[in-house]
Write a protein that binds this DNA or RNA. Sequence first.
RNA 1: GCGGAUGUGGUGAAAUUGGCAUACACGCUAGAUUUAGGUUCUAGUGCGAUGAGCGUGCAGGUUCAAGUCCUGUCAUCCGCACCA
Length: 807
Amino acid sequence: MDYKQIEAKWQKKWEETGLYKFDKSKVDKKYYCLEMFSYPSGAKLHAGHWYNYGPADTFARFKRMQGFEVFHPMGFDAFGLPAENYAIKTGIHPEDSTLKNIETMEKQLRRIGATYDWDYEIKTCVPEYYKWTQWMFEQLYKRGLAYRKEAPVNWCPSCNTVLANEQAQGGVCERCGSVVTKKNLNQWFFKITAYADELLDGIDKLDWPEKTKLMQKNWIGRSFGGEIVFDVKGSDEKIRVFTTRADTVFGVTYVVLAPENPLVDKLVTAGNKAAVEAYKEKAAQTTEIDRMSSTREKTGVPTGAYAINPVNGREVPILVADYVIASYGTGAVMGVAAHDDRDYVFAKKLGLPIERVIKSKDGSPDELPYTEYGVMVNSGEFDGLESDEGKKAVLEKLESMGKGCLKTNYRLRDWLVSRQRYWGAPIPVVHCEHCGDVLVPEEDLPVRLPHNVNFTPDGESPLKKCDEFMHTTCPKCGRPALRDADTLDTFVCSSWYFLRYPDNRNDKKPFDSEWINKVLPVDKYVGGAEHACMHLLYARFFTKALRDMGYLNFDEPFLSLVHQGTILGPDGNKMSKSKGNVVSPDDSIAKYGADIFRVYLMFGFNYVEGGPWNDNGLDSVGRFFDRIERIVKKCYEMNFAKDALGKAEKELNRVRHNTIKCVTNDLGAFSFNTAIARLMEYVNAIYAYDGAVEKKNIFYKDCARDLVLLIAPFAPHFAEELWEMLGETYSVFNQPYPVFDEKAMVLDEVELAVQINSKMRGKVVVPTGATREEIEKAALEAVSAQLGGATPKKIIVVPGRLVNIIA
RNA sequence: GCGGAUGUGGUGAAAUUGGCAUACACGCUAGAUUUAGGUUCUAGUGCGAUGAGCGUGCAGGUUCAAGUCCUGUCAUCCGCACCA
């Protein structure tokens, strides 16, 4: 069979007949199957795209044949840094290169032979889309979920530019390798922390990989604790500290402020001012790499001021140290050296006192620092309380004194969405001297991204240098004003695209709520695991915020999630140009066609694990296809007997129904490799029957027909061709997927393993309905010689499996 | 440092509640068919020369029975990174 020819043939036919057009009238049977959309930074689809999209399409086809109306769209996440960097490198404008790349990728995606309905395509970089991205920003702003504040950004001193977080991974500039520092800029944030609790509590209900759920939970990082107020000696200032271990409060021997904490300047004494200033200066210059290292030596300087411990009135020194993070909790901690590893190291280094206030519960000797829960000692009225009740008791007491309260903190920070970059959606805000930050009125959206801009990075937002963009009038007072020069993080675009697909042509609204509530949520989402704490979290946040605004009636965007594994280079390393181990799918597809390539990808790997590329498996899939083609052809040309079914037919029928059962289960679980193994077994069983039986029963034809139906989601073009060969009418994808018959799978007799003292000693065949006594008898007979007349002490019978004779 | 995962033949990988370890392929060996084949078919293929036996990273444990459960340990990978 000429696979390339039949692929062209069927792709044309599918297109002409609109086979994969989503039928809106059947939305009650909808199944929203979505793959993370592609990023058109490179010009071509690589093996990873195929590995994501090929198997996911098999799943979509399977759902379709199961009777669902599958909504399966595709689009392009077209804004973003890689496209811009590519433009900087090549000198081609990102708009031109991106649109060209999209065109190429669309063509390639069609060659996968997937069920995408291109009527619903999305490109995030076109004004028709980013108009609504800007609209999203405005809604969040109106609800108080978008705000602007001074914040440090990543700064590369060598490239003289700000960097996105993704570009500064590991504290090193992605492009030049320089060490990244921080610089303060006025930045837009989305208040994702307002949803921290719901984002956390909703995770358990999701059908997502456990690993991903855990990562997201840890990322949100909720910790229950309390705030404790320390008065400052001789001052009206107060220091609030956050702690999860209020039971250790009697062991406080000092208090530490983060260098960036504004209290530092207020509290520092004249004699310590110079040292503290120097320390702050040094901390500000500390690189991201060093700041991230938990193994680095702890440093700090005293402020000269003293804090008063509210539980015992004790005066303790106040220090500044950069192991305290300004942005977490209150930017201040109480130092309990005896019961915290970091405080212990710090106290040792600076010669601060260390005082035990917790002992192990069972009284066994323990060493300091002792960070486990235990029993309170040296803690006045609280002595003898265990840590968990002690925590509560201490905070209750402090609360009654007005010196503390229960408090929950999160590791999650608000989402910084400003990017000092060109290739993104402009932020729809005007800065007016008189009116402050003013939203661009909805009817004036989109704020268009100007084409003619010098986007070479030089430390300023590129748009700032574009006068005709920057200068505008204030929508409120009409006086001259400036636009916001930053663009939105690309992750903003991808936080709502799945809502746009079903209503992508709507020019009045981002989507029609009534309609979207029918098509959403996404039933199956397939994409890379690298998005666990970014895109997947942001999209959940958007969904919840839009729900609270009344636009959506569901809580979660993606009910069920699967991550495909990574296809590595043949050397077992991640594919990369620098390693020279990149495998292009183009050659394989040219030689074998899309179907064989897809099936190879599904058969050769565990889908969620991936693994190193190895192309000698392609031939074996090719042989598998040949075997199918030969037997279907033969079957079509054959004359059949119409006798009753014999033993051989029964056996083939059993394999047939077992195959249907297993393949159905496996496909539902994204276990493509085992599904294909079962199909191979079925083909082997058909050949065995074919070789053993002279005059084939007419039922044989049904077996061949089922084979084509079963294989259809995996090899769509091939299956259409075979379906036609069998004389059936177009299309095989309008057929229901075969359903198994439990009765056909019941055998007349079963083979049991016979063990003596748990060692394999033989086999025995018994009738399916045999009683326990009959089975025991048959088993004893089967191994009587080896038993040597000994009377068994005990016989264990596992029906359908084995008999274990304990002698 | 913390959290999570993985470890099975020469290779890719399978294995419901604990129940015949290595399904399905690749590769390899021998043979048959064909004008030729990188075709097709048959047989074999965990280790061990045979048998006994031994075998799921390593060491223990529970059990009639462990790849699967428990304890410890090593290796690799991923995520977080002083979160009080």
